[in-house]
Design a protein around this nucleic acid. Structure first.
Length: 447
RNA sequence: GUGUGUAUAGCUCAGUUGGUUAGAGCGCCGGAUUGUGGUUCCGGAGGUCGCCAGUUCAAAUCUGGUUACGCACCCCA
């Protein structure tokens, strides 16, 4: 049979894994520094935990796991008869793959509320699955790096999370613009335009501003049934540059003013230290997810057309659906896959691979192979990433292997070297070669 | 869910109006070279042309179906 992968998933070669780990390690180290603790949740959740949390579209994109055993025996006969897949699902599938990390986290918090201390700060770096049709930069399996705080509505955390963004992207050397807004400001806009009941339609249209332009947003709102006068009003407010300018529009909108106040409090905390990246209020920032209720964030890479590489915000009642009311959360997510693409395009990955082999030993015959195995053990003991070709095969073959493996150094061990207790150390890039004893060899790599 | 494209060697791809034994480059194996890779030369292995039908004297090539994967839309990271 011809080996291949199902659509939307990928293998990673060692060099890719090294690069991906560089991103994950950088993110993780910043999370830890800010006092966040790791948790892990299972690949599978109960389907009942997942369904209905991501909208109708989301339900369709959930991967469902078929029940074990003779699952058709318990299948809903009427749904089976009618060939109604949607209705059939609950009777043949009780589990699904997680679609994001936020809903499982909400479940986790409710379930373990007596074992954790609030405010609870957690981070989670795990893959998620979506049955979306894949295309460039979009996969059915991808990693999310989430960091959230639950159990406090202090705006200090908003400032802290934006600082994490700032610090991570500075550490990765990726120049970004961090956009900040507040869902209450958007609610104020809807109120000012007299379309509070069409808040969702409005935000979804605004969310596309970057992509479809001003006229596109007007059309989108029109298509979604918002009247022309309200559209004009919304577009006028979108022109606003700062919070002061915005305030007059919200004279009669309590929620709008509350949004402005929250943003000001956020800035009081955040502005105590200068940011390394551009951080700015962006009134056109909307974020599609409708569970956000307060501050919202989005990160865009500078100089690369790729969309957002991170986003997040405040949600007042995430655990509510699991029966735990009034617990506020705020969190942000890093789009690791897209960060990878940006770093690849801008050539930002470190040249030196800290997980790659440093030296390969090559032996000429059986006695030297035995000696070389002793050497490779000594090198490893000294913390040097070393390996030995498994047989004293033809030099050409061994050298070719070294070349293909991109090992920077090769240590050759033949009869002469055995006699002098040295090896011939060859620099694979320059071709230069020198005889060296074990002690000097170790010092060369770990001085 | 909608639209659209692709499928030939391990990989990337040629393959003429349908016509002998389906090719190239790279990779792989062996040799030139029994103590030296990345350059060169020589030789070799490797294919159910995605799958199933149909048209035809004859199909990788034309037609229909099917499966897989890609790209775009919706949506999203």
């Amino acid at each position: 049979m011809r080996p291949s992968l199902p659509k939307g998933v990928r293998d990673f070669l060692p060099e890719q894994v090294a690069k991906r780990n560089f991103i994950f390690d950088t993110i993780r180290s910043v999370f830890i520094k800010y006092g966040f603790r790791p948790i892990e949740t299972p690949v599978m959740e109960k389907l009942s935990t997942l369904t209905g949390k991501y909208g109708e579209e989301g339900d369709r994109l959930l991967f469902k796991v078929l029940n074990n055993g003779d699952y058709l025996k318990k299948a809903d006969p009427s749904a089976l008869e009618a060939k109604d897949s949607t209705k059939l699902i609950p009777s043949i599938s009780k589990r699904g793959l997680r679609y994001d990390l936020t809903v499982p986290f909400a479940r986790f918090v409710v379930q373990h509320q007596n074992e954790i201390a609030f405010p609870f700060k957690r981070y989670q770096i795990q893959p998620v699955w979506r049955a979306d049709s894949p295309q460039k930069g979009r996969y059915q399996e991808f990693y999310q790096c989430d960091v959230d705080v639950v159990g406090s509505d202090s705006l200090m955390y908003e400032a802290e999370l934006v600082r994490i963004y700032d610090e991570v992207f500075a550490a990765l050397n990726v120049p970004v613009k961090i956009k900040v807004s507040n869902r209450k400001v958007l609610a104020g806009m809807a109120e000012a335009a007299g379309i509070s009941d069409q808040f969702m339609e409005m935000t979804m249209a605004i969310d596309k501003l970057d992509k479809i332009g001003e006229q596109g947003v007007r059309n989108e709102m029109g298509n979604r049934g918002i009247d022309a006068i309200a559209i004009d009003k919304v577009m006028t407010i979108l022109e606003v540059k700062g919070l002061e300018e915005l305030e007059p529009y919200f004279k009669d909108s309590e929620i709008g003013l509350k949004g402005i106040e929250e943003l000001r409090t956020f800035h009081q905390y955040f502005d105590l230290e200068e940011a390394k990246n551009e951080v700015s209020f962006d009134i056109t920032l909307a974020r599609g997810l409708n569970y956000y209720t307060g501050c919202i964030f989005e990160v865009a890479a500078k100089g690369v057309e790729i969309g957002s590489i991170g986003g997040g915000g405040r949600y007042d009642d995430l655990t509510g659906v699991f029966g735990m009311k009034g617990v506020s959360g705020v969190g942000v997510s890093f789009g690791a896959e897209r960060i990878y693409d940006v770093m690849q395009e801008l050539d930002l990955f470190p040249k030196k691979d800290r997980s790659a082999l440093e030296i390969l030993l090559i032996a000429f015959d059986a006695p030297t192979h035995l000696k070389a195995f002793e050497w490779v053990g000594a090198l490893r003991k000294a913390g040097i990433r070393a390996d030995l070709y498994p047989t004293p095969a033809k030099l050409k073959k061994q050298m070719k292997y070294a070349d293909a493996s991109k090992v920077p150094f090769v240590g050759l061990l033949g009869g002469q070297e055995l006699e002098n207790s040295t090896i011939s150390l060859k620099n694979m890039e320059t071709g230069a070669q020198q005889n060296i004893n074990l002690e000097d060899l170790i010092n060369k790599f770990r001085p």
